[in-house]
Computed example of a mutant assay.
Amino acid sequence: MISLFGAGEMGEALLAGLVRSGRAPDEIVVVEPRTERAEELRWKYGVAAVPPRQAAESADTLLIVVRPQHVPGLLDEIAPHLKPGCLVVSAAAGVPTRLIEGHLGEDTPVVRVMPNTPVLVETGMSVISPGRYAGEDHLRHVAELLGPVGKVIRLDEERQDAATALSGSAPAYFYYVIENMIKAGADLGVPREAVQEMVLRAAEGAVAMIRATGEAPGALRESVTSPGGTTQAAVATLVEEGVGPAFRDAVEAAARRSRELGEQFGT
């Protein structure tokens, strides 16, 4: 039995992925205290909403997808009711596995995961890290659970702050770039619908070129930057405006904030 604690946007995305992958709805329960939301999930996915204690008692795998500040209280509530060996998977940002292990007792297998929002459209990235008592079988099981909503990679937990900056937060960076390119196109007098289509296709094509050719992004950029041409004029402006260093600073800021959140939990 899989018990899902947290049925917000990310929790529902993971729930949808489980159901799409062939998991029977009667093998999943959800903890959702809002009656209307619980009924919505039952109607969409066929899953039952149950109280926390019941979800904990029945779980072979327990997914925590709640706000970080709610995790300690939740763990204390469910700790007496978990089966021995229950696998706990936490997608609560910044919460270290050792905090979860400390609340749930010795030998509890815990896997920490940092997903990103494209899991909502099955193109997400989930970075998983094992706690002290999680083994290869546990990691493989988590990868199978998350596989239907995107790519899964493994990193040591000490790299999770970087993963947060490079994956968890990263879609917002691209949204910001696309948002401003669309604004620039509109300022040039191009109809907004046409601007958006051009910008989105350019973004999709750039990613496809990197994957298809195996070339470094810098090499591909240089290959389309003719001396004295339009692309060179644009890239020169980006360099002059310090866009590269600004992106590095942004990623470092996100990683630093992730570390700060973790320190709140005693890391």
Rank of each mutant, 00 (worst) to 15 (best):
V152R: 00
P109Y: 11
P171A: 15
V113F: 07
H103M: 13
H141S: 10
S126A: 07
L139R: 06
R140N: 14
S129H: 12
G150K: 01
H81K: 01
V127N: 09
L63I: 11
T164V: 08
H103T: 09
L166H: 08
I64T: 12
E157C: 04
L62M: 15
L120F: 00
P109E: 14
P118Y: 01
I178P: 09
Y175Q: 12
L99H: 05
A165S: 08
E157N: 07
L145K: 00
D60K: 12
G73M: 06
I100C: 11
S58R: 11
A91R: 08
A59H: 04
D60C: 10
G124H: 00
A91T: 07
V142T: 02
S58W: 06
A163Y: 04
A143L: 08
L63T: 05
L146E: 11
A56F: 08
L139I: 05
V152H: 09
L120H: 00
E136H: 14
C86M: 07
V111S: 05
T117H: 00
E158L: 04
S129R: 14
A165W: 00
R112I: 06
V111D: 10
S90Y: 12
T97Y: 05
V110Y: 11
L75Y: 08
G150P: 05
Y133C: 10
P118V: 02
A59M: 01
D161E: 06
E106V: 12
T117W: 00
A93Q: 14
G124R: 00
Q69M: 11
V177D: 13
G105C: 15
P68V: 11
A172V: 03
Q160E: 14
